[in-house]
């Protein structure tokens, strides 16, 4: 029966593989990041011992950031400025994973363009721009 199996289309494989490996990387970072946080608790954007205490006191996210980080600036500046700390590195991993649609759709668009399917290039572009707008913080809710 194996020879009957149709190969999944190239755009399927390109999109799937990129999402898969970036998500895998993101996951490994989320194992390693908290470990570094606990080994060097004072070399973090927020000390994990106090972070967990405050989370379980029911404090809001911005209250915790204000209390432990001193400020709640633009999201991406936090992981960028604290990249070599446990929680900054974890934040980078989460950011990588939550923007994965952008990194996967850009090469997928080239496959669609090569297959002369411009409608999917346009749909993909719309999704990419939506993620970029959302991740930039330009569009906010509430």
């Amino acid at each position: 029966m194996t020879e009957d199996r149709p190969l999944a289309p190239l755009h399927n494989r390109v999109y799937g593989e990129i999402v898969y490996w970036i998500t895998f990387t993101s996951c490994l970072i989320c194992f390693v990041g908290p470990m570094f946080s606990m080994i060097w608790p004072d070399k973090n954007a927020m000390n994990p011992y106090f972070t967990y205490a405050m989370v379980f006191e029911g404090m809001t996210g911005s209250e915790i950031w204000m209390a432990l980080y001193g400020d709640w600036p633009w999201f991406h500046s936090v992981w960028w400025n604290n990249f070599f700390t446990g929680d900054g590195f974890t934040m980078f991993g989460i950011t990588l994973g939550t923007t994965v649609a952008v990194w996967a759709l850009i090469p997928t668009m080239f496959v669609f363009a090569g297959n002369k399917q411009p409608q999917y290039v346009i749909f993909s572009l719309i999704v990419v721009f939506m993620v970029i707008f959302a991740a930039s913080g330009i569009v906010r809710i509430g």
Partner: peptide
């Protein structure tokens, strides 16, 4: 789709990395 939907929450400071990490993994 959630690559779009998750960001307003992050921008409001709702992401606590050391809490979210084990859930993500």
């Amino acid at each position: 789709g959630d690559c779009v939907a998750v960001w307003p929450y992050f921008m409001m400071g709702a992401l606590v990395p050391i809490l979210a990490a084990p859930w993500l993994a």
